[in-house]
């Protein structure tokens, strides 16, 4: 009985798709358009988050040890820093290593550093600290500053804040964009499907009078909407991925250096999954909304 009903629904849905092919094409085109916009929002949002993560990884806090501390005393602070929550790594940089680093980066003025070796080295021992969560940087800075033997903690709060804000804004914009495109999509699709439903209003009315349940009437429309959604998702997937592949390729040859874009292969599965889910949702939900009014007979 259930199998017969299902095959009946599918037969009806495909027959209706063909009979109303103009409406079907129009609805599918609308779904493709909405998914293209949604795809752009998704890719943009994902990439900004991806780039923010790269910048977060590069982010470090520098903790300077009291100048009076010997290297052995300074190294004893390592375990205390490691115990602070959200500290990922704490790399000890001795004052000699720091000076060597400066000499290397300023090779042209290397002679100026010669007299600073040994007891004359004015640089402190340092800890370069990376975090497991950069949004907790201020808490970590406060904890590190409390340690006896730490003279000063430098934290590029401007960079940090811009990273956090950009990442949050990107996620919010991407999410809001996707919600707006989904709502606009549902509205446009339900309007398009409504034309198809209105054309079949009499059929629905007669079905109701002879005792059809609401779900008997709804299912073929939902299947139609879902089929249009899947077809729309497949069509939209092609230009979105081809377009993105070209952007990634152009970026690698022209703009790469500071940060990378998400490789296409890592994004493909997400795009097709979200497109399929959104396509089905737009199609099916648009159908349900369109038909609701006509079921009140």
């Amino acid at each position: 009985m259930l199998g017969r009903a299902c095959s009946n629904y599918f037969a009806k849905a495909f027959s209706n798709l063909w009979k109303n092919r103009l409406f079907s094409l129009l609805s599918t085109a609308t779904i493709v358009f909405c998914l293209l916009l949604l795809g752009i929002a998704l890719i943009l949002g994902s990439n900004i988050t991806y780039v923010s993560k790269q910048l977060e990884v590069q982010y470090e806090i520098h903790a300077y040890v009291d100048l009076s501390y010997s290297e052995a005393d300074a190294k004893r602070l390592q375990s205390k820093i490691n115990d602070i929550p959200y500290v990922d790594t704490a790399t000890f940089v001795s004052k000699e290593e720091a000076l060597a680093g400066m000499e290397e980066s300023m090779a042209d003025s290397a002679s100026a550093f010669e007299m600073l070796h040994g007891e004359e080295n004015p640089l402190p021992h340092t800890y370069d600290i990376t975090l497991t969560d950069v949004s907790k940087a201020n808490e970590v800075v406060a904890e590190v500053s409390k340690l006896v033997g730490i003279d000063e903690v430098k934290n590029r709060s401007d960079v940090l804040n811009s990273i956090i804000n950009t990442s949050r804004a990107a996620q919010a914009v991407s999410m809001i964009g996707m919600i707006i495109f989904a709502l606009v999509g549902i509205f446009i699709i339900s309007s398009t499907i409504k034309m198809s439903v209105t054309a079949r209003q009499r059929e629905i009315e007669i079905m109701k009078y002879v005792g059809a349940t609401d779900w008997y009437i709804r299912w073929p429309f939902i299947i139609e909407g879902t089929v249009m959604g899947i077809i729309g998702a497949l069509i939209a997937y092609v230009p979105v991925t081809i377009g993105y592949a070209n952007i990634v390729s152009w970026w690698q040859s022209n703009g790469a250096g500071m940060f990378e874009l998400i490789p296409l292969i890592d994004l493909q599965a997400r795009v097709i999954l979200i497109f399929a889910i959104m396509g089905c949702f737009l199609g099916a939900f648009g159908s349900v909304i369109s038909i609701r009014k006509h079921l009140k007979v």
Partner: peptide, 30 residues
């Protein structure tokens, strides 16, 4: 309730794109 009765209308209310057989059969399909 509606399956327990049969309805006949002044304006017939037949589906124009279905044959006589299909118009009658679809009341049983549902």
């Amino acid at each position: 309730l509606r399956r327990s009765m049969g309805m006949v209308f002044q304006d017939f209310r037949l589906l124009p794109n279905k044959t006589v057989y299909e118009n009658v059969a679809f009341a049983m399909e549902i």
